[in-house]
Nucleic acid binder design. Structure first.
Lengths: 147, 147
DNA sequence: ATCTTTGCAAACTTTTTGCACCAAT
DNA sequence: ATTGGTGCAAAAAGTTTGCAAAGAT
């Protein structure tokens, strides 16, 4: 919760204003702490403040993203998911069952290095999801009808 | 071009039909051979067959994807890009200038293995893009005004 | 008082769908 | 003849925008 105030001050320092809506969205983001969609956030903030509009959520996320506090990822087809930038992780997403798991960024270190060395390309961690098939769905594929 | 006929036979074998539109979309896909959007493909096919509709392009891509012949990737925000599945590559995408480069899948081998070993997660190659900053844009950031 | 943000509605972009007609087998 | 595909138009889904009123500084 300390952190929340710090972000809000940061926001003000850059010429922005601290509003009820922004406080609520940020709060929701801290509370949820997982990959949430804009609509997820809307649902959370609306429990306390039903007047807050989806477009405000988007605009707040935008503001927070410009501050570098928030990042978003496209996990697959539909909506983007947003999260605070502190916990540095990546996502693996099962394309069969939509299961999402966070994995440590460490696993990407070598790839990151190779891309820098070979292509002078600086990967932005956290901004892509790895698509594939999860353990459970792999098993299902192996034993189609469970004998 | 041999390959094209093979795909079409494949399509028929699985209960599908070989139509003018499908031939045209497939042809366009072979011709373009890079990451193209559905609309790119539409433009290509419409030079020869203006009656072909965007929804037909989507439906054909869908059919080809079910066959495993085509794959699509979400490079970032907007549209998805489609490509034939043969050349196994990944994409690195510059988030500053939208520059796209193909890189060999080989670079992902270790990551792939780690994810399998640690999470029993089977990565689907080709289905995600790596976002970051390209060489040129990195340079621009270093020397803001070129002295 | 000024300049930013909000709520709303409406636009926009990309993709999907329902349906009647048409075409491939 | 049958089943699957096409073109069209309209809907969906997700996100963005214009504007006047409200709010933060």
């Amino acid at each position: 919760m300390e952190r929340m105030e710090a972000v809000l001050q940061n926001l003000r320092a850059s010429g922005g204003r601290i509003t009820h809506a922004r406080r609520a969205v940020l709060q929701a983001l801290v509370t949820a702490r997982t990959h949430v969609t804009a609509e997820d956030l809307l649902n959370i903030v609306q429990t306390g403040s039903p007047e807050i509009h989806l477009s405000t959520v988007y605009r707040t996320l935008d503001a927070l993203e410009n501050l570098g506090v928030v990042d978003h990822v496209h996990l697959g087809h539909g909506r983007a998911v947003y999260h605070l930038t502190d916990n540095a992780h990546q996502h693996i997403v099962c394309e069969k069952c939509s299961y999402v798991e966070e994995i440590p960024s460490k696993l990407f270190n070598e790839l990151e290095k190779n891309l820098m060395d070979t292509y002078q390309f600086k990967v932005r961690m956290n901004h892509f999801a790895v698509i594939g098939t999860c353990q459970r769905c792999l098993k299902k594929l192996e034993e189609p009808k469970h004998a």
